[in-house]
Design a protein around this nucleic acid. Structure first.
Lengths: 338, 338
DNA sequence: ATCGTTACCGACAATGTTTCCATACGAGTT
DNA sequence: AACTCGTATGGAAACATTGTCGGTAACGAT
């Protein structure tokens, strides 16, 4: 199948490439008859413009990258998809880029800003590394999600997230309300991710408000995958078998933990209660259904793209935007038996 | 942050752009001292070439697109990721493109072949529409996965899949072996997807070999999502409550069905047995663990990219490649009680 | 001293598109 | 008749890079 260029179309229609470009970009200054003729030829040839050549000249619409950390994470994927849904009709174009869990997303950003002249970034599930010199002199606007940039003081950065501290407190509170006292926390401390740190702090708030001391050895740092959580849980419960509840900082981790619990003969929620975080779809289908902190995926997505578009048009970035989340009670938490 | 071009680098290093291009492409004919100097300047400026300009001139390496149907499907995602893992060191570059469930992936392919001069395609989870005229005169090589192109007779198309008929038979056989007779099949008949049709045919093979007649009303056509399967199952079991086993044509569907079963007070596998298909990771963590047909993701991926690379180099396409799959027995199937 | 070879490097064309500037032409104004 | 003006069109430069071709210098061989 022949690939036609704008030049071929021009020749076939008996006009100049300039004119073809004009009808392609729906400019007004072309004779209706000519326009119609050119359009017919384009349709016949199934003409589609070359994106590389167009990108070279960088047209009006800016290019924005959504950078996704990890390809498998269902929550982050849902977030990215929701963002794409909010980009319709905007005068920018979007691309999504995946980076490995352990890769440096800023390297990716810097590469994209050169390679494809990307003008703005949305990081989903990213970190903020304030010492990163590449980040320091990156002048493209950036939006971070699920973490907060309020203390980062980059020139053109904003962030959108739920109030992780409050929701961490709420998650822990439901376990306390159910009478649990020996509670484990499965999370991760990731450099540059204050989301996890805030969830942890919130959990501590609830604990100390209730006068329940936290046994540091019940904090488990785990990989954020089904298998990682499973292994961590097997190991943890071999040691701390008297734990009656778990606050898992992601639903994926919660599921891995529940599977492990089941494998050592404990049932959920009868023997051990579990509360998750994120609100992925699978949580509604798992057995038991997950009690979890549900992130408002659509709100986060909408705010993120709007804030970024604002910044692109020169608007002052609001350093941090908080959206409302809610804790949804399902089946994985029950009153403490022990 | 300034975006440097090859021209800036040339000026700073006191050489011509040609020379810079040469060191960029690691060509041998440049003086080591010059090379070192240019490389230093590039490092200082954090220079990264413009992908658009490079794409315009289209260098030796061809561009290949992996077209993924749906963004959420864990099996297809795993397949795509495995493919990417097998592209390392190949002299082609790859991009992955998502298309909506209900969109036409060939439209996307045709667009990519124009827009980005994509030279080859791998469709993961796609269909084959033989009447598609765009497909007919597409001369770029294509590889289809999870379906078979053996009857399609396109000039440069190949396919890689497991033996769906045999595995459909095996899945049904395990249910028959467990003593089940009133068995439902949850699947989809999709135009151009002979994978589902073959699974169905295989199931029929097993049934008729065992002398068990199939009640057509126990074939349920469902959306391939958790919620779609859930709704279909609720509806189906309200009517056909005496069904003791389900063959679900994907693990996602199996999970939706199990959730529905549980909600109407039936347990799995005690009351109803379920066998899934695909072998997604969640199947190993779900309660109960899924008995399923495990697709050899890595084999399919490897074969797909190798076959495509062969075709790109002018090799004759093997019309269809079959890779071995196995049925893994876990917890969701038990002997029939009724 | 001249030739051929090799290593290294630069000028230039080409890629497909958009944009800026120029041109042609008819209508309306002085 | 000489102008401006607006509409419709084309020519050519520009975007950043690669590949082709030719050129220069150095060097050993004749």
């Amino acid at each position: 199948m022949k690939i036609y260029t704008i030049k071929d179309i021009a020749r076939k229609a008996g006009v100049s490439v300039t004119t073809v470009s004009r009808v392609l970009n729906k400019r007004p200054d072309v004779n209706p008859a000519t326009r119609e003729r050119v359009e017919r030829v384009m349709a016949e040839c199934r003409f589609v413009g070359n994106a590389n050549a167009r990108g070279l000249k960088q047209p009006d619409g800016d290019l924005i990258a959504i950078i996704l950390r990890g390809r498998e994470n269902p929550f982050l994927n849902a977030l990215a998809e929701a963002m794409l849904a909010h980009t319709q009709g905007l005068k920018a174009s979007f691309l999504t880029e995946f980076v490995d869990e352990q890769a440096d997303e800023f390297q990716a950003a810097i590469r994209l800003s050169h390679e494809k002249r990307v003008k703005g970034f949305i990081f989903v599930g990213g970190r903020i590394d304030e010492r990163s010199e590449v980040l320091q002199d990156m002048d493209a606007p950036m939006v971070f999600t699920t973490i907060s940039a309020e203390n980062a003081a980059f020139p053109r950065a904003a962030s959108v997230s739920i109030d992780d501290r409050a929701m961490g407190r709420a998650a822990m509170q439901t376990l306390l309300d159910a009478g649990h006292r020996r509670i484990a926390i499965f999370g991760g401390i990731r450099q540059g991710d204050d989301g996890f740190a805030k969830r942890y702090a919130g959990a501590m708030d609830a604990l100390s408000a209730a006068g329940v001391p936290f046994d540091e050895s019940r904090f488990v740092q785990t990989r954020f995958s089904l298998s990682g959580a499973y292994e961590s849980a097997r190991q943890f419960f071999a040691d701390k078998a008297d734990t009656t509840a778990v606050f898992a900082m992601s639903d994926t981790v919660a599921i891995g933990v529940i599977r492990a619990l089941k494998d050592i003969g404990r049932s959920v929620p009868e023997d051990v209660s579990v509360v998750g975080y994120d609100g992925i779809e699978m949580g509604k289908f798992f057995l038991p259904r997950l009690t979890t902190v549900e992130q408002p995926v659509d709100d986060i997505a909408r705010q993120s793209v709007h804030v970024l578009m604002d910044m692109l048009e020169g608007g002052q970035p609001p350093s941090h935007i908080v959206v409302d989340a809610k804790l949804v009670l399902r089946e994985s938490v029950a009153p403490c038996q022990g």
